[in-house]
Design a protein around this nucleic acid. Structure first.
Length: 584
DNA sequence: GCCGTTTTCGGCCCGACTGTTTTCAGTCG
């Protein structure tokens, strides 16, 4: 529904509608996307729809139509004038609604193939604002779009940011480099990289030399723009990088501004205006300064700016215009979970299956990271390609893990576990006798392609009834940028997990970002015990915990919401109790 | 199309860069 509303906004824009009307459709799309209760249940009660900020009478009617019929009159009408394929064109660089409308009215161009043909055959030249440069840029844009229209994983973008930062630091007088944008906000993926740079070399009178240095970095594939203090370029993998060089005095304002999100900033600026200020990327300033009074109120740090607006400083992960501004005004922001709060990591692999290190090596590495307990959870036999453990090997592996636990002499506890496969019918692929030996049984689905949603739901519901299963591992099976999540009744499964005391795992590895922040909020609301684990296959993977924490923070989670923050004894008793007949 | 300590009309965030417009429109973040 959010996508349909967003498309309608784009079509309205192409139709040259009132820009504020367009914005209201965009706002409604965002509001719809943020809902944690199914819209179907709100449709029958208009009061609940109208209670959502950004949804008024007209939009509520649209939402009811979308829910009941899958479309709405305005969208249908616009689609008789324009084509859905024209929306793809908006993704090309320097292509906005006006240009798309012009191309359609003048040359009947309605998709990317037609645009490419027209560009190559020189038909564009007769249009206003279309010189050779514009045409070249467009052709390059089409090529890039086909090669790489996706976003980039946060860990890969982070590594790239580090690499560029190291090069920038070579320039004398560049001191501080901070990634902003969605990387700083901790989104799972980023569309581009925003790097803010400051230091003596960035002061207004000398900045041009530093700009020149940035614009000639050897890793640049295409230089897109070079301004007084901004350089934009793409890398060979298609990632766009925006570097901004700013004086110290306004660094906080710039950091706030370029961290976003857009909707957070728009709301913040509105609040500033109501207080008689104007906020830009340079400063928070008085609208009408008294004679002889400086207009600048705050600019050097983010803390000053939020404080001057009567707010607590807001962690970047929360800046999505999702209630954080109101909470900051009321001083009721949550004390978000941090990496230091994490004491255990209970999902990892060793050389016994598809890991790269031994039990002892994993334990030593975890100890070095300050963890108090871990669980070794290698694969079970159904994952033959990983050399998965059958009952006999799994039982021997338990004894090997217990031996390492003894070797560690209490410096870190090493629990015996297994990542048991949940089969098609919802049963587990090891005997109860084997599972009974495990401290931590993580149940995971490893094959669910094209399984209907209701079968998948039944499979998970049956699996979590097994009394030995203590953690539902990477529940959605999602692999970011590679695979769609398994589709099932998420609410129903989470609710049953909460009832049974089965913990739900948030897999910290960026490639396996399982529970989106939305689902994490749902899990919390439904009373689930949430466990964050790295699913480490090597000692380096243990560092990925920080990406998991970022997603937890985006879901407004505090230490008490995650069981891995507990001491070892409390952690074990937070898990579903093991069946009584196991004995002492 | 939404919204209200300026409440049913008249506002709605702010600035930089590009290209080719000789004064600024369109795009972008």
């Amino acid at each position: 529904m959010a996508r349909l509303l967003d498309e309608t906004a784009a079509l309205l824009e192409i139709d040259a509608a009132d820009p504020f009307r367009v914005r209201s459709y965009r706002r409604a799309a965002e509001a719809v996307e943020q809902q944690t209760t199914p819209l179907a249940s709100l449709v029958d009660d208009p009061k609940q729809l109208l209670a959502i900020a950004g949804i008024g009478k007209g939009m509520a009617a649209n939402i009811v139509d979308l829910e009941r019929t899958g479309s709405m009159p305005l969208r249908d009408e616009l689609l008789t004038k324009y084509r859905p394929s024209m929306l793809d064109l908006l993704r090309l660089p320097s292509m906005g609604p006006k240009t798309v409308a012009l191309l359609f009215s003048a040359l009947q161009i309605e998709n990317m193939d037609q645009l490419e043909t027209a560009a190559k055959e020189g038909h564009l030249a007769k249009l206003p604002r279309f010189g050779q440069k514009q045409v070249d840029k467009l052709l390059k844009g089409i090529e890039d779009h086909r090669r790489n229209s996706g976003r980039f994983r946060i860990d890969n973008a982070g590594e790239t940011a580090d690499k560029i930062a190291a090069m920038l630091r070579e320039f004398p007088g560049i001191e501080t480099i901070t990634p902003a944008g969605s990387l700083r906000r901790g989104r799972e993926t980023v569309g581009d990289l925003d790097l803010l740079v400051t230091g003596p070399a960035c002061e207004a009178d000398v900045v041009s030399a530093a700009v020149e240095y940035v614009a000639t970095l050897p890793l640049i594939d295409v230089l897109l723009a070079k301004g007084q203090n901004k350089v934009s370029f793409t890398l060979r993998n298609g990632l766009q990088v925006d570097v901004r060089l700013l004086p110290r005095a306004s660094y906080g304002a710039a950091l706030q501004y370029f961290t976003g999100s857009k909707m957070h900033n728009v709301s913040l600026r509105q609040k500033a205006l109501k207080r008689g200020y104007t906020l830009s990327e340079y400063a928070l300033a008085r609208l009408n300064p008294e004679e002889g009074e400086s207009s600048i109120v705050a600019a050097a740090t983010e803390e000053e700016i939020y404080a001057a607006l009567g707010m607590q400083w807001i962690a970047p992960e929360l800046r999505e215009n999702c209630g954080e501004l109101e909470a900051a005004e009321a001083a009721t922001l949550p004390s978000l979970i941090t990496l230091d709060d994490i004491r255990g990591d209970v999902h990892m692999h060793t050389v016994a299956t598809d890991g790269a290190f031994t039990i002892r090596e994993m334990a030593d590495a975890a100890l070095a990271r300050g963890l108090k307990y871990i669980a070794i959870t290698d694969h079970s036999k159904n994952l033959a390609m990983t050399n998965g453990l059958d009952d006999y090997r799994a039982q021997a592996h338990v004894r090997a893990i217990q031996a390492v636990d003894a070797e560690m002499e209490g410096r870190i506890r090493v629990f015996a576990g297994i990542e048991v496969d949940i089969l098609q019918d919802g049963s587990l692929d090891l005997e109860d006798e084997t599972l009974a030996m495990m401290d931590v049984v993580v149940g995971s689905v490893h094959s669910a392609f094209q399984m209907p949603s209701d079968e998948m739901t039944a499979r998970l519901l049956r699996a979590i009834e097994n009394p030995y299963l203590r953690i539902l591992g990477h529940p959605t099976g999602r692999k970011l940028l590679r695979r769609d999540p398994y589709v099932f009744d998420m609410d129903g499964v989470l609710r049953r997990c909460a009832e049974l005391g089965v913990a739900v795992e948030h897999n910290a590895a960026p490639a396996r970002a399982d529970l989106s922040d939305l689902n994490l909020r749902k899990a919390k609301a439904l009373g689930c015990r949430i466990s964050v684990n790295t699913d480490a296959h090597s000692i380096d993977d243990l560092a990925k915990m920080r990406f998991g924490i970022t997603q937890l923070r985006r879901a407004w989670l505090e230490p008490k919401d995650v069981i891995n923050t507990l001491d070892v004894d409390a952690f074990l008793s937070a898990l579903r109790p093991r069946p009584a007949h196991v004995g002492a």
